Computed example of a mutant assay.
Amino acid sequence: MALDLTADPVDLCAALVDVPSVSRDEALLADELEAALRAQAPHLEVLRSGQAVLARTDLGRERRVLLAGHIDTVPIADNVPSRRDGDLLYGCGTSDMKAGDAVFAHLAATITEPRHDLTLVFYDCEEIEAVHNGLGRVEREHRDWLDADLALLGEPTNGAVEAGCQGTLRVEVTLRGRRAHSARSWLGENAVHAAGEVLRRLSDYRARDVDIDGCVYREGLQAVGIRGGVAGNVVPDECVVLVNFRFAPDRSVDAAEAHVREVLDGYDLRLTDSSPGALPGLAQPAAQEFLAATGTTASAKYGWTDVSRFAALGIPALNYGPGDPDLAHTRDEHVDTRLITSAAAALRAYLT
């Protein structure tokens, strides 16, 4: 089924949902998007990169705006094809984030003379490990395609603007003891019991609220997992506590790791993964213009998104999409079609 990019973006969203695109299996949808852009948007230069589809204008405008959205979804949960129920459109990926993709693709095809040059990036593998993220591949292979004065990611925000994002890191805290028979426990040292002090420090931890450009980022340091134990009659000699730190974007990853090590001073810590946050960048003219044109006020993004990748390149980036983040990845995932319509209208006003 060929995609009609000029159709109502609500209908386009349903059509996108009806093409399954679970992470690593986006080829069919990428093919459909590429074919539609080449056939229906002759004013755009189109590039295929793996399972990502890129398009852009070259009108010599003073500024360039980049619209980015991932086309992959989490595994389908008996929620494809899409279905309508009044103002609600149900289906896998409706909120996260084929509604945003539909708005971006529709505008790219129907706005032939934007007042800013436009770049579209529809990319793959966002829902799985960061090493596979198609946006990273585009950065490595086609860096110039990411240059812009403002990047807008269609992540679900209920039509609000969420600026920047938190950084995140995880560490493993390893407690060691001495194994013994539980009937003679005094001969051993219980590593699981030793985790109590780590958990107490985390429970007593008081996180910062950080105001950046009027956006308040709330940090959080939490134990998110624990493993240990050998058998029902053995004093365990090892216990590992998994700790996640969500930090405000005024901290670098190195600074965030140093802070966690300070809080858990004296313990054996191993950093397992990390991603930097993104400053809101609201002072940039293109971001101010977007907020004014859409009549919105930005708030902080809780969680990590690919705006971080753009921020690392020195490109201001905002999250703006019609989906509901609370419905992402759920079996009854859906989107309010009125938010698709209003997002398309707001972006059209901004871009024209």
Rank of each mutant, 00 (worst) to 15 (best):
D209P: 06
T305D: 04
T119N: 07
R246Q: 12
A298D: 03
A41M: 09
Q40K: 09
L291I: 09
N133A: 08
A287P: 03
P236Y: 05
L153R: 07
A278C: 14
D25V: 08
A349T: 13
T341Q: 12
G91T: 02
Y302L: 15
P280E: 11
L313S: 05
T352Q: 12
H43Y: 02
F310Q: 10
R24H: 15
D101H: 13
N319Q: 01
T305H: 08
R218M: 05
P75S: 00
K98S: 00
G167Q: 10
V224G: 14
V253D: 02
H43N: 08
T112D: 05
A183N: 14
V243I: 14
L199N: 09
D211F: 10
T157D: 02
E127T: 07
D124Q: 10
R201L: 11
L118E: 08
T112M: 06
V17T: 02
A207V: 04
C13N: 00
T337N: 12
G295L: 08
Y267P: 03
T330L: 14
R48F: 05
P249H: 05
V230N: 10
D78M: 00
W304K: 01
V171H: 08
W186T: 13
D149Y: 07
R251P: 09
D326I: 11
T272M: 08
V121A: 15
V253W: 00
G154L: 08
G321L: 01
A286L: 01
V74I: 04
A343V: 11
R48Y: 03
R227T: 13
R184P: 07
E262Q: 15
G69F: 11
L12V: 02
R309I: 15
A151C: 10
L153F: 13
A195H: 10
D147V: 14
L187W: 15
P325Q: 13
L271G: 00
A278K: 00
D8W: 08
Y267C: 07
I111E: 10
D58Y: 07
K301S: 06
L347Y: 11
S21P: 00
A278N: 09
L150H: 10
D306H: 04
S182I: 09
V241K: 11
V263R: 15
I212R: 14
V80W: 01
D8P: 01
W304I: 06
A195N: 04
H70Q: 02
D8S: 14
G323H: 09
D31G: 04
I315T: 06
N133K: 00
P236R: 02
V241P: 04
V260G: 05
L351D: 09
A163R: 12
R338M: 00
D211K: 02
L150R: 08
W186K: 10
L291M: 12
A248T: 02
V17S: 04
A180K: 02
E34V: 08
S342G: 06
H181R: 01
Q166T: 12
L169Y: 04
G196W: 04
L271E: 02
Y123K: 07
R218S: 13
I340V: 02
D324Y: 15
A99N: 03
W186F: 15
G164K: 09
